[in-house]
């Protein structure tokens, strides 16, 4: 509509959201990077220490585990969860009986809090009276019954699995993409003699790629910011095997190691940006910014 005439209105309307965004996004991002270069402990003056905090954390075992696990989380969700979601989306897009019900049912766990879901899975994984172990024992497979969350090799897969299996969020996004593909493409492929499998591989996958990359980006962002289930199920143990940077950040914050906590935050932000940027760079020609724009 008209220009300039409404500049007062425009400024007034943007003021609340602008103030909030600057206070809670822009200032905090700057804060984290500045404080990560100091030895700040919450009071007194900030002493500039260069990259000492970064050198320090990269030498810590729990940080190394945390960084490794965050990458595993991001890749498991970005590739594993999105792939499973894509498989289900491709099936549902062909509108099998009950597809609407299935779509609604698959998404249900996504509206339940991560905390409640983690508690639910604790009742599944726990050593005694746990659903998984009692089922195994009932089937005579006693030797397979484990302390799933306390075992060094099963703890991380167990925690990741309880999130990975809930594909609803990305399934909905991908389903929208698959359903927006023109039907005529499938019709002509069918006339040409392509079977269902070939249609999916040669039509659906290339056509839905851009949306799949958006889903992967979001999934990786979720993996990088993962906190709840690990905090509640294992607290990062056993022996750091499920440690994440979020948990480590929380610990350092409570110990008032603000410089170190900020360095962990900075790594979290940089690694998140790198892994998302790299994936998008490899899989698309469009930039992330263009996607966020409309």
């Amino acid at each position: 509509m008209t220009l300039h005439k409404h500049w007062k209105g425009i400024a007034l309307f943007l003021l609340p959201v602008g103030v909030m965004y600057v206070t809670f996004f822009i200032y905090p991002l700057g804060y984290v990077f500045v404080v990560s270069l100091t030895d700040y402990r919450g009071f007194g003056a900030m002493e500039f220490v260069g990259l000492a905090n970064f050198r320090r954390i990269f030498g810590m075992t729990n940080f190394q585990f945390g960084l490794r696990n965050n990458l595993i989380w991001a890749l498991s969700l970005g590739f594993g969860q999105v792939a499973l979601a894509a498989l289900v989306a491709m099936i549902l897009a062909r509108k099998p009986p009950f597809w609407r019900f299935l779509r609604t049912a698959y998404f249900l766990p996504n509206v339940i809090s991560q905390v409640a879901i983690a508690m639910l899975w604790y009742t599944i994984y726990r050593e005694s009276f746990g659903l998984l172990n009692t089922t195994l024992r009932a089937m005579g497979l006693d030797h397979l019954a484990l302390n799933w969350l306390g075992n060094l090799s099963t703890a991380l897969p167990a925690v990741i699995l309880q999130q990975l299996l809930y594909i609803g969020y990305f399934m909905i996004i991908l389903l929208a993409g698959v359903m927006s593909i023109p039907r005529s493409l499938y019709e002509s492929a069918e006339i040409d003699g392509a079977n269902v499998f070939q249609q999916e591989v040669f039509i659906t996958i290339p056509m839905v790629k851009d949306i799949a990359v958006v889903a992967m980006t979001l999934a990786m962002a979720f993996g990088i910011r993962h906190f709840e289930a690990t905090f509640l199920l294992t607290g990062g143990g056993p022996a750091n095997r499920t440690m994440t940077l979020g948990i480590l950040l929380h610990r350092n914050l409570h110990a008032a190691n603000y410089g170190r906590a900020s360095a962990i935050s900075a790594v979290l932000i940089i690694v998140g940006a790198l892994i998302i940027g790299l994936t998008r760079h490899l899989l698309t020609t469009r930039s992330a910014i263009e996607d966020v724009k409309q």
Partner: peptide, 14 residues
């Protein structure tokens, strides 16, 4: 809109 991708837990301290 780019704020969607900021890992919010990294901003615990601020």
């Amino acid at each position: 809109l780019a704020g969607v991708l900021v890992p919010i837990i990294a901003l615990m301290l601020p």
